[in-house]
Design a protein around this nucleic acid. Structure first.
Lengths: 199, 199
DNA sequence: CCATATCTGTAGTGAACACTACAGATATGG
DNA sequence: CCATATCTGTAGTGTTCACTACAGATATGG
């Protein structure tokens, strides 16, 4: 019974553009005017499709994590905990300095602190960072069962450590650190895993 | 020749309050209304004393780093590179979860990404983070000369690594990580230095 | 005591913000 | 072809923002 006028823009392509704006300017620094211009639509279309600015951010975050899911699968499929750490940190160094993207990580750049009225934006980002940490922890638990990680190793602590290092690399990248600098940090960081490895 | 009415508020005490607001809400999230209320003054007094919002931030950052200078001296005075790293990261874990302060680190929380017109706020924060990294690097160069750090160790890479880890801990702290979690990260991170140490 | 210089409080200023009313356009269902 | 439902573009809405004009208050220098 009457389906209405169909939307004229590609929601995923528009989200890619919104993602870039949030990435570069943060949630509060990104204005609706910048977002609509980048997305190639007008405000009413944005609000009809995503509800409000925060809804648009969540949709952009969903797309961000979806795009990284395949990479994360590859990271977790490395044969040993040490290799997981290396793939994770080296991939992070590369993606955070990829000239096709804004520097750093959207889940860090998006906003660590926000003004009154946007308090749950930082929570939203933190929740998504925590998902990666959970995946790493489970992978390291498996590494202990498989035996390439010593029984005394603390899977939760190692996962937290990797999470912290990659967040720190995001901070560095956002302030202009180049790929070589981040790879140096990655190389130093991975050494920790050699101590806990059986090989 | 006529000195004018003296200021009725204590600039340092007011800066402490402003620092806390920037720390908790970030540069863009902090409003002049919040700042003036916390500082106990009215807007004209703020602008007369600090120029504008960005000038106030810089003054607050100066006070932040000045307050940490004594602690940093203590960190750098540790006998070996490994002890420097341990003091640095343990102290970071504690201060970033000190209930007397907002969580995390002002130099990270203040703003990694900003909107148009505040582009140099992230640069300002990054420049001050870089100072700490410089101090660490020089300390590690000394450690190599003194012999407690192996000749093959890369002082710049180790300093960058510590800088990245402490920034990452700041991200974690700002999203609710408790002191124990940060100490775990610190303990794991310090292990890297044992490999490069001669003792 | 007077002239001057600076601070303080009240009460705004224009601009930019997130968001939306409304009318016209374009599809589907009958 | 008509009624209905949704999208699109124009042009705003009220609110909040950083910032300030102005008048009164309070110190110093002569």
């Amino acid at each position: 019974m009457a389906m209405g006028r169909p939307r004229e823009f590609d929601a995923d392509a528009a989200l890619d553009q919104a993602m870039e704006v949030f990435w570069r300017h943060g949630y509060e620094g990104a204005t609706i005017a910048q977002l609509t211009e980048a997305m190639g639509i007008n405000p009413p279309s944005l609000y009809a499709a995503f509800g409000n600015k925060e809804g648009l951010l969540k949709a952009a975050l969903d797309r961000y994590t979806a795009k990284r899911a395949a990479w994360m699968e590859d990271v977790l499929s490395a044969p040993t905990a040490r290799d997981v750490a290396e793939r994770m940190l080296m991939g992070t160094a590369d993606s955070q300095t990829d000239p096709d993207n804004p520097p750093g990580c959207l889940l860090v750049q998006g906003g660590l602190a926000c003004g009154t009225g946007s308090e749950n934006v930082p929570f939203e980002l933190a929740a998504r960072r925590a998902l990666t940490e959970d995946q790493l922890r489970e992978r390291f638990v498996r590494a202990k069962i498989e035996g390439d990680l010593k029984p005394a190793a603390d899977a939760a602590a190692l996962a937290r450590y990797l999470s912290a290092v990659s967040a720190g690399m995001g901070v560095m990248a956002s302030s202009g650190a180049d790929r070589e600098a981040l790879r140096q940090v990655a190389n130093v960081s991975v050494k920790v895993f050699e101590e806990h490895s059986t090989t």
